[in-house]
Each structure stands twice: as structure tokens, then as C-alpha cells.
């Protein structure tokens, strides 16, 4: 099997004149195969490539085109441009739910999907295959002389008590540009008022805003940031240099995002798409599965099980997509974080 890792600028493929913005692209599988499974995803190529390779081993006659885009671009590709992807994988549970709610998905149910717990699926359209908690990543260097906080209250106290240490060294998602950040923030706010107090405190410390977990973790590792709030814990834990950072799953509550897969109604290859969904959920929810990629996206959560708050799939997620609601939420957030 030959592997191609190609960037957009390098390919001249007239069939995929994409209007939405793609970040990365990968084609896997035999060149001679007649059938191509087209996947659009928000998950990085490096993290997902092993999963695809394993899938192709069981489907030797298939090749896979894997396109990476941001959550909003993915939404744009499916909802507005009706791009003919066979599979859509996204960390934006709210947008995936909206696709299903608006009838832009193909329902699918099988023996594999029936093994999922109820909270890991919505209707027969959206299926979760990872559980990724939002963590607080702390720089060990910065906390050399401080006790590591265990929850948000303790973090607030620490930040308040040491403004000089933390000024300009606190980072979190920019909710205006990151769908995942917005999802985490809205769920936090739903869970507890402490989120707003923390945001106020971070705002007072001139918090820096980012649009991806990776960048925040980089900055914590390098020591530029002391605290990164609502970072994907799985990313932090899977890094080789994770010794530099402390990954904290807050004990008051830990919001858990689930990466979901669905089959868009525009799929041209729905039968293979169903095979892929079955493979993915089968690997994810089978405790004996050995797929390393999915394991890194599913960190061991047993120790913090009681504080986990899994984001619930369903129409409730549509609330925060409402323009009024979003505008209102973002203005409140800007008010807090930017201290306007």
C-alpha cells in the first residue's frame, strides 16, 4: 500500500475544486481501486492516519481521500456547498447535530451502532467515537512554588493571588474563531456560574486567545503560557514532551467533547460509508480494540468518571447556534475576557 500525503497547493485535481477552505489532504489506498471513500474531517491527519490504514486493511479494494478542514468550513462544505463527501467527522458536536436535525444526513443503524450507549448517538445519524475531556494544562515551571489546583475555584484563587506571575500568561480559546472553544464555553456556562468568574479573572490578567489546542499546548510547553484553559486533554497527553506540563481534569466538572461521525445525504458511496462508520464505532466502543490512534483520542477517564460531564447530543446543542443566543453569549464573553 502506498501512502500519499499531499498538500492542497501540490495537487492539480480538477474534480475537487473546493470552495471551502481545506487545511490538509491525504489519499490512502491502492491507486487502482475504483471506489474512493471521501472523508471530510476536523481531525489532524497525523492522529487519524493509523485509523484509516487499519480500515483499508480490511477493505483492500477501497481507497480513501481524507480532507481536513475547520469545523466551520466543514459545515460550509456540507450545508451550503453540498459537497459530495461520504463521511463527515467533526469535533463540533453542535454543528454535527444541526446537520442531522436539518435532514442533511443519511441515517444508518447496524449491529455495530446498536452497541453504543444512548448518550453516544443521536437518532440514527450522529455517532460518537471518542471521548475527549477539556483539560486545564499548566506549566510545571510556572507552578514550581505553587500547589497545583484541582478545580476551577482553586485556579481562580491562585490566579487572583498571583497576578504578577500570571499576567499575560493565561490562554484560552477565542470563542469568536473556534467552534470547539465556543462549544466548551457554552457547556461550561450551562454547568456553573464559576465559568463566568474564571473568565472575568482571566480577562483581568490579559488572557491570550487562541484558535486551537495545539498552539496553546505549544505555548505552555515553551513556558510562554502558565495556564491554558479548556484545552483538549487528549492532545496534551499524547505529546512526547508532556512532561513539561500538568494536565488537569477539573474535579468540579470536566466537560467531555465527543468526536462524531455522520454520513452526509450527499454521499455518493453510502454503502462504503456505512462500513466505515461501523468500523469506527466498533473500534471505539470495543474495549479490546487495539487501534492506537483511537486510544490516544480516548484517554483513560476512569479516575475522573464522576466529574465527567459529557456534552449531550441532541437539539439542546442547537440553542447555542441560534444567532441571537450566539451574539448574546459572545458579547457577554467579550465583555469578560476583553474587559470591555
Amino acid at each position: 500500500m502506498r501512502v500519499f500525503v499531499l498538500f492542497l497547493g501540490l495537487i492539480l485535481n480538477p474534480t475537487s475544486l473546493l470552495a471551502f477552505e481545506i487545511e490538509d489532504r491525504l489519499i490512502l489506498g491502492s491507486e487502482t481501486s475504483a471506489q474512493i471513500l471521501r472523508i471530510v474531517s476536523t481531525t489532524d491527519v497525523e492522529l487519524f492516519k493509523p485509523v484509516l490504514e487499519e480500515f483499508l486493511q480490511s477493505q483492500p479494494n477501497l481507497s480513501v481521500e481524507y480532507v481536513v478542514a475547520s469545523t466551520t468550513e466543514l459545515m460550509k462544505a456540507i450545508e451550503e456547498e453540498q459537497q459530495s463527501f461520504d463521511i463527515a467527522i467533526s469535533s463540533a458536536m453542535d454543528l454535527q447535530t444541526k446537520l442531522a436535525n436539518d435532514g442533511l444526513t443519511l441515517p444508518h443503524s447496524s449491529a455495530a451502532t446498536s452497541t453504543l450507549p444512548d448518550w453516544a448517538k443521536w437518532r440514527e445519524d450522529v455517532y460518537a467515537f471518542t471521548q475527549e475531556p477539556a483539560a486545564i494544562v499548566l506549566s510545571r515551571a510556572a507552578f514550581e512554588n505553587l500547589e497545583l489546583p484541582q478545580n476551577r475555584e482553586e485556579l481562580i484563587t491562585l490566579l487572583r493571588d498571583n497576578p504578577d506571575l500570571f499576567r499575560g500568561r493565561v490562554g484560552t480559546y477565542d470563542l469568536r474563531s473556534s467552534g470547539l472553544g465556543y462549544l466548551f464555553a457554552t457547556q461550561d456556562s450551562r454547568m456553573s456560574e464559576v465559568y463566568w468568574r474564571l473568565t472575568e479573572v482571566m480577562g483581568a490578567l490579559d488572557a491570550k486567545l487562541y484558535d486551537s489546542s495545539g498552539k496553546m499546548i505549544d505555548q505552555v510547553v515553551s513556558g510562554e503560557l502558565a495556564v491554558a484553559y479548556n484545552v483538549l486533554g487528549s492532545y496534551a497527553l499524547s505529546r512526547k514532551d508532556s512532561g513539561e506540563v500538568a494536565v488537569l481534569f477539573p474535579s468540579d466538572f470536566t466537560t467531555v467533547m465527543m468526536r462524531t461521525v455522520l454520513i452526509p445525504s450527499t454521499a455518493t458511496n453510502p454503502e462504503n460509508a456505512k462500513l466505515f462508520v461501523d468500523f469506527l464505532v466498533g473500534e471505539a466502543w470495543n474495549p479490546t480494540s487495539e487501534t492506537s490512534a483511537l486510544r490516544s483520542l480516548n484517554p483513560a477517564l476512569e479516575t475522573v468518571e464522576n466529574s465527567l460531564r459529557r456534552i449531550r447530543l441532541g437539539p439542546g446543542l442547537l440553542i447555542f447556534l441560534d444567532t441571537f443566543k450566539k451574539k448574546r453569549f459572545l458579547s457577554a464573553w467579550e465583555n469578560s475576557i476583553l474587559q470591555k
Partner: peptide
């Protein structure tokens, strides 16, 4: 309009 989360989640409590 500050749509309450419960307004939609109550709908999903009964059915999908």
C-alpha cells in the same frame, strides 16, 4: 431572545 437550553433539551428528553 436568550433561548433557554432547557427549552430544547426538554424536547429531547422524550424522544430523539
Amino acid at each position: 431572545i436568550d433561548l433557554p437550553y432547557s427549552a430544547f433539551s426538554m424536547l429531547s428528553n422524550v424522544s430523539n
